[in-house]
Amino acid sequence: MKGKVVSYLAAKKYGFIQGDDGESYFLHFSELLDKKDEGKLVKGSMVHFDPTPTPKGLAAKAISLPLE
């Protein structure tokens, strides 16, 4: 699924993505496929991810940034 980063707290390594389906997904650095892309996780960045339901809500897994 595609989505847009709505927040990312680099110090805490987490944030949120708004998916194309309108839902909010929890984003964690550990799910970023290329850790070098962390600096690109800023508000408004477009990402691809696997939407995954968890006991705490919806989460983004296997997060990647589109090729530039």
Rank of each mutant, 00 (worst) to 15 (best):
M1V: 07
D50S: 15
G57C: 04
E68L: 13
D37N: 08
L58I: 05
G44D: 06
S24N: 12
A62M: 10
L67Q: 13
V6I: 13
G57I: 02
T54E: 05
M46C: 13
S7G: 07
K2I: 11
G3D: 00
K40I: 05
P51T: 06
K36N: 13
T52D: 09
I63R: 00
I63W: 00
D20Y: 09
G22F: 05
Y8V: 06
P51G: 10
A62T: 08
P55D: 10
H48V: 14
L41Q: 00
F49Y: 05
E38K: 04
Y25I: 02
L41S: 01
H28K: 06
V6P: 02
S30T: 10
E31N: 12
A60F: 00
Q18G: 05
Y8Q: 02
A10W: 10
K40D: 04
H28P: 05
E38V: 10
K12M: 10
L32N: 00
T52F: 15
L27E: 00
G22W: 03
L41R: 01
L9Y: 15
L41G: 02
G19H: 01
G19K: 01
H28G: 06
L41T: 02
K56I: 07
K61L: 09
L9R: 12
P51F: 08
P51A: 11
D34P: 02
G44W: 04
T52G: 07
G22R: 04
G57E: 00
I17Y: 01
K13L: 05
S45V: 15
A11K: 13
G57Q: 02
G3Y: 00
P53E: 13
K40T: 04
G44A: 04
V5M: 04
S64Q: 09
A59Y: 12
K35P: 14
K35H: 09
G57P: 03
S64N: 08
S7F: 15
D20R: 05
G22V: 02
Y14G: 03
K40H: 09
F49M: 02
P51M: 05
Y14E: 06
G15H: 01
M46N: 10
F26S: 03
S45F: 08
G15A: 02
S30V: 08
E38R: 05
K12C: 12
S30C: 12
K61S: 09
D37G: 06
K13G: 11
P53D: 12
L67G: 13
G19M: 02
S30I: 09
M1C: 08
D20K: 05
K43H: 10
I17E: 00
E31T: 03
Y8H: 03
H48F: 15
Y14D: 03
Y8E: 02
H28D: 07
M1N: 05
K35V: 08
A60N: 02
K36G: 13
K4M: 12
G19Y: 01
K12F: 10
E31P: 00
G3M: 00
D34Q: 07
G44F: 04
T54V: 05
S30F: 09
M46K: 11
S7R: 14
M1A: 07
L67N: 13
L41I: 07
G22L: 05
H48G: 06
A11F: 10
K13H: 10
L9T: 13
P66T: 14
L27R: 00
P51R: 07
Y25H: 01
A11P: 08
V6Y: 08
P53Y: 13
D34E: 08
I63S: 00
K36F: 09
G22I: 02
F29S: 06
Y25A: 00
D34C: 11
E23A: 11
G39C: 14
L65F: 14
G57V: 01
A11E: 13
S24M: 15
K2Q: 11
L65I: 13
K12E: 09
L9N: 15
E68K: 11
Y25R: 00
E38F: 05
D34Y: 07
S7P: 00
K12S: 09
Q18D: 09
L67M: 13
H48Y: 15
P53A: 13
L33D: 04
S7W: 15
M46V: 15
L32P: 00
T52M: 14
A60L: 00
P53H: 14
A59L: 13
E68M: 12
L58C: 08
D37F: 08
K12P: 04
A11G: 11
V47P: 01
G3V: 02
G57L: 03
A59H: 09
I17R: 00
A59T: 11
V42K: 13
Y14W: 12
L65G: 04
V6H: 08
L41M: 05
L65V: 14
K40G: 07
T52E: 12
S7A: 11
E31S: 07
M1D: 03
K36R: 13
G57Y: 04
L58S: 05
S30A: 09
S30Y: 09
S7H: 11
Y25C: 02
P51L: 05
G39H: 14
M1K: 07
G39E: 12
T52A: 13
D21G: 04
S24W: 14
P66F: 15
P53V: 14
G3P: 01
F16P: 01
K13A: 05
E31K: 04
K2N: 10
Y14I: 06
G19W: 02
F16G: 01
A62K: 14
S45R: 15
P66K: 12
F49E: 01
G19I: 02
S24F: 14
F16D: 02
E68F: 11
K2R: 13
A10V: 13
M46W: 11
M1R: 07
L58Q: 06
H48K: 12
G15E: 03
E38S: 07
G19F: 02
G22T: 04
S64C: 10
K56L: 09
G22M: 06
S7Y: 15
G57N: 03
L67C: 12
V5D: 02
F26E: 03
E68T: 12
D21P: 00
D20E: 13
